[in-house]
Design a protein around this nucleic acid. Structure first.
Length: 369
DNA sequence: AAACCGTGGCC
DNA sequence: TGGCCAAGGTT
């Protein structure tokens, strides 16, 4: 146990027990995905909660469970339906991996999620931390998560310098987190309370901006609290200049219908339905004529959308077809490989559309009423 | 190892 | 207003 000895501190031996006691008294106990050991529900919530806040996830989680009550139902659904239900949540590779994972569980695991961390982590969209969350909540496994909450708590309590997104720092945090998990005497309920406690402490008390150290069970031991370094820990992400991209979007209208185009499965907004795009005004005109549109082009107000790593300036251009143009070849909505579709403005909910495009079309619908 | 991948809330 | 980032994983 030399690796644990090297990490030993007065707090180490008590960390798990103190956290579990705190969680039982002050943690969250009524989130929609709690109070169940159903791996499907736990898995679904964990995937949705990746890089996404609780309040944002709640309505999506309810809609998914309602539409797909079991992993088999999700596996049997068309990917397009999953994408449509996911639209607005972001990070759409999660939705594609969610669908693939459901199919692997259904086809290769007899419809039951595997119980070990290692087997879970082999499934699409499930990494080391998410596997530990599922395994601890559903199966009582003594494994640690390492999400943003845990990184913040560990950096402060144990005084760990360096940006946690950096590999070297993250590896050190994994080692520390592993050394803190409850011992073999811990019950399944203890394990659940521990994992939940890590999240609850970071999300409700050891928050980024103004941590509530007075109520923290580790206040007396916390390096950040006892040295007044709450604002410095964890170290913030190194700043980088965000590049700007510009795109022209074609709003091709035929009565109350607009033409959508399916995006490639990878890249930004992968697999979603969006407006046809072109890299400049001229190219957009060429595309419009290819769709049979020869009418007047009217610009809409440009809009800007900021992603994590770049800014997108959108130049929308409207052309009214009024039934005079040729319809695009692929319009069958039930065709698996359809790349374009005419969609009533009132019916875009059935398609997975990027959030800013959705807003644009909602505004257009309002102005046409 | 670092870049890529969304969106909304917060201040 | 804009910078910052949230229950990360994949390539």
């Amino acid at each position: 146990m030399s690796s644990e000895t090297s990490l030993a501190s007065p707090l180490h031996a008590e960390f798990a027990a103190r956290l579990i006691a705190w969680q039982r008294q002050h943690g969250r106990h009524d989130l929609p995905w709690q109070n169940t050991r159903d791996p499907y529900r736990i898995w679904l919530s964990e995937i949705m909660l990746q890089q996404t806040q609780v309040a944002t996830v709640i309505p999506y989680y309810a809609r998914f469970l309602d539409r797909f009550p079991t992993v088999g139902a999700l596996a049997a659904a068309p990917l397009d339906d999953v994408m449509a239900l996911w639209a607005g949540l972001g990070y759409y590779s999660r939705a594609r991996n969610l669908h693939r994972c459901a199919q692997v569980v259904a086809d290769e695991h007899g419809g039951a999620f595997p119980a070990s961390v290692d087997a879970l982590a082999e499934l699409p969209g499930i990494g080391r931390s998410t596997a530990a969350a599922i395994a601890s909540f559903a199966f009582g496994a003594r494994a640690t998560i390492l999400d943003g909450n845990v990184k913040r708590v560990l950096a402060r309590v144990f005084g760990i310098d360096g940006f946690p997104g950096e590999k070297r720092v993250e590896n050190a945090m994994w080692v520390l987190a592993e050394s803190l998990v409850p011992g073999a005497h811990a019950s399944d309920a203890d394990v659940s309370a521990y994992t939940q406690g890590l999240m609850d402490l970071g999300a409700t008390l050891c928050v980024r901006g103004k941590p509530d150290c007075v109520r923290c069970p580790f206040a007396d031991d916390c390096v950040a609290n006892t040295t007044g370094r709450q604002r410095e820990l964890p170290a913030s992400r190194p700043k980088k200049a965000v590049p700007t991209r510009r795109t022209w979007m074609l709003v091709l209208l035929d009565g109350d219908a607009v033409m959508l185009e399916k995006r490639p499965p990878t890249g930004i907004w992968g697999g979603l339905w969006s407006l046809p795009e072109a890299p400049d005004e001229v190219a957009l005109g060429v595309r419009a004529r290819a769709f049979g549109a020869n009418g007047a082009v009217s610009p809409l107000a440009p809009l800007s959308h900021t992603f994590t790593h770049f800014r997108l300036d959108i130049e929308p251009r409207v052309i009214e077809l009024n039934g005079k143009g040729a319809q695009p070849a692929a319009v069958a909505l039930d065709a698996q490989d359809a790349q374009t579709a005419w969609v009533a403005l009132s019916g875009i909910d059935a398609f997975g559309v990027p959030a800013p495009v959705r807003k644009l079309l909602d505004g257009l619908r309002g102005s046409l009423l």
